[in-house]
Design a protein around this nucleic acid. Sequence first.
DNA 1: ATCTGTTTCCGAATTGAATCCGAACAAGCA
DNA 2: TGCTTGTTCGGATTCAATTCGGAAACAGAT
Lengths: 206, 206
Amino acid sequence: MARKPKQQRSKATVDAIVEAALIAIARQGPSATTARQVADIAGIGVGSLYEYFEDKDAIFNAAGARFVDDTVAMIKPLIPELVRMNIRDAVSKLLFTFRDFLEENNQIYLKCARHAFSQDMVMHQEPINRALMDLFTQYLMHHPELLRMPNIPAVAYFYINGGIFTVIRHLSEEKPTQSFEELTMVFGDFLASYAEHKLGASNATQ
Amino acid sequence: MARKPKQQRSKATVDAIVEAALIAIARQGPSATTARQVADIAGIGVGSLYEYFEDKDAIFNAAGARFVDDTVAMIKPLIPELVRMNIRDAVSKLLFTFRDFLEENNQIYLKCARHAFSQDMVMHQEPINRALMDLFTQYLMHHPELLRMPNIPAVAYFYINGGIFTVIRHLSEEKPTQSFEELTMVFGDFLASYAEHKLGASNATQ
DNA sequence: ATCTGTTTCCGAATTGAATCCGAACAAGCA
DNA sequence: TGCTTGTTCGGATTCAATTCGGAAACAGAT
């Protein structure tokens, strides 16, 4: 249990397990997934699961970690491009790219997100948070006038949790009542309006 | 199994079970809670659980339903008062009242929310959604000039999911990096700025 | 109060999934 | 080839959820 893979063969096994977990989660969600199912999808015996993972949860965590890593890898290279855009375009570009990323691989990630944004996969989402915060910070660097906005930390919190994550969560809804494009636009408008309002004229509230 | 309580005595039992479930969820979250624990906390035998509930999930759902009902009962009477306020004050009043509600009863609801905003308790949150949407709609009725805003449905979606729920989720974070008050203010500012920006120079917030 | 049918309560027994474990199988090495 | 170590497997074990059959509490009638 919880061994480190030494040979090439076993590395492939670990990978197969993580892949299988993602597929199973996408299909039925974590709680409905049995250890035997994961083993079957991975094409290995049940016992093998426990050679590399403490327990079933550890497998799901590894799957979550893979998702988080891939997400961060998707966001990071976008940053240089985004910081040069205006707020609305940057928001659009980021969210559209995010959506495309979730649609890859038969929507595996999108379907996972449906369950995963619930589960404790969220607990390990911190790196995504950091990547988004990084984008936010660098954006401010390239638009120093925005530093005059009040409550920047709270704005950052809303941009990440109230904005990006809300739209992503919306993507994984079954019967969306809103269009993704419209939400994206409104979110960009919220941010831009706030910035313009706070930077223009007088500041009514502090 | 899944009987309807006929006598007073059994109604009390059902109630004790739901209460116990809320306590257990607050303590350890749903996944770590065993049926036996719920029975122990409720002061009844395990078997009794299954007299009134299909399975463990049904118990958690009932607990979730109780939370949702109480929440709606908290929001509804606020509406007449809120619709007469300006945007920022209405947002503040709503969120502060919400917070106080979650703090009641030893923070049971707040601690539940910590786990529950994850689980499928969310699935049954629809009534809360409707109550908040009701508030939104009635607010627009009392401030007809706001009807000139574009993308009203998307704005409503953000107000509920990106705003209210984000702040509530923030409340149940372990080590909040933001102050609740600041977030509340910024959220109100987001909404008000958007409205003012979209309505032009006119002063929409009185 | 006693009897009778109904409701409620219980906890030992059952069931099924998660996890462990030791034998069998492959790889690396001399 | 024989030896050692890494890997896989699936039956055996464990533990929580759920069932079941009967005991206790109740309501209503006599």
